[in-house]
Nucleic acid binder design. Structure first.
Length: 271
DNA sequence: ACCGGAGCCTGTTAGC
DNA sequence: TGCTAACAGGCTCCGG
């Protein structure tokens, strides 16, 4: 599923095809995909606007148009791709939103689970008012992480998934970062030692950056805009490796539920 | 303020 | 082999 690295990969792939292109028309095949404004206003407002920039904040794709921001969240199974108008793709089976561009291309948004959302707004803060720091930004440090964790009694894994806590970390990279840091997902967040905070901050950055460098994970329904698989799935230490031997010590990887999420860890390497 | 649980969805997988 | 039920999960909302 798309997390920060996958969204970043999508954003980088969309800049070339989108920037400078003008929207001719909007189409949708499922009203739930359009969060706001209502579809009629959305269509009327976006027509004629030109893409000026495509960026990412947390797991949101934020495309700047002349007068508005087109914001897209892929959630679980969303796919976003630019394609010639008459081309057919496998993912079109779940196509629920589309923009016609001025060069005969289309921006298509496909989403098998219908969890994804599209917004047209003047401010991302209006949509997501409580996003935490970007883990790959310079101001994300171990000291900041320790301060965020202080006094919190929830399991560290649950807190890592909280977007108001750290923006962009999802289930895969939370499990991977905790493994690399030797910390059990069930540990009370406020009980982590300073050394563990240091390790965790560094490893969150490490797994996210490494995944971006390899083009994103290919777990589940993820594909990047070119249709190429990402490379990070081969580097997973624990996620979706239940029962398989730990790559460090050979102990079978355990799967539990933490904060309503499947959670994977090595009972020997993580304490 | 904090925390846990239900609900949104449907393709895939486990179980009979 | 063929059917059904359980499962997956990012995020929002709601209640304690």
């Amino acid at each position: 599923m798309p997390e920060l690295p996958e969204v970043e990969t999508v954003v980088r792939g969309l800049r070339g095809p989108l920037i400078g292109r003008t929207v001719r028309a909007m189409w949708y095949g499922w009203p739930g995909i359009i969060h706001s404004p209502d579809p009629a206003h959305f269509a009327a407002r976006i027509a004629g606007q030109t893409f000026r920039a495509v960026d990412r904040r947390a797991k949101y794709i934020v495309a700047a148009l002349d007068d508005d921001l087109l914001v897209i969240h892929l959630r679980m199974t969303g796919r976003l791709y630019v394609t010639p108008r008459d081309a057919v793709h496998d993912a079109d089976r779940w196509l629920y939103f589309r923009l016609d561009l001025d060069n005969g291309q289309q921006l298509r948004f496909s989403d098998a689970r219908k969890f994804g959302k599209v917004y047209l707004t003047d401010s991302l803060a209006r949509i997501a008012p409580n996003l935490g720091p970007e883990p790959l930004a310079d101001d994300f440090t171990a000291a900041n992480l320790a301060a965020l964790l202080a006094g919190r009694r929830r399991a560290i894994k649950a807190l890592l998934l909280e977007q108001s806590f750290i923006a962009g970390v999802g289930n895969i990279y939370a499990d991977e970062a905790l493994f690399l840091s030797g910390v059990r997902p069930t540990r009370k967040a406020g009980k982590l030692t300073r050394a563990e905070c240091e390790a965790l901050a560094a490893n969150i950055r490490k797994v996210l950056q490494r995944s971006i460098d390899t083009g994103g994970s290919s777990i589940s329904d993820w594909i990047n805009p070119d249709g190429q698989d990402g490379g990070y799935q081969d580097e997973r230490m624990v996620y979706a490796r239940t029962g398989q031997p730990c790559k460090v010590c050979g102990t079978p990887i355990k799967r539990i539920t933490v904060g309503q999420r499947g959670t994977h860890y090595c009972p020997k390497c993580q304490s």
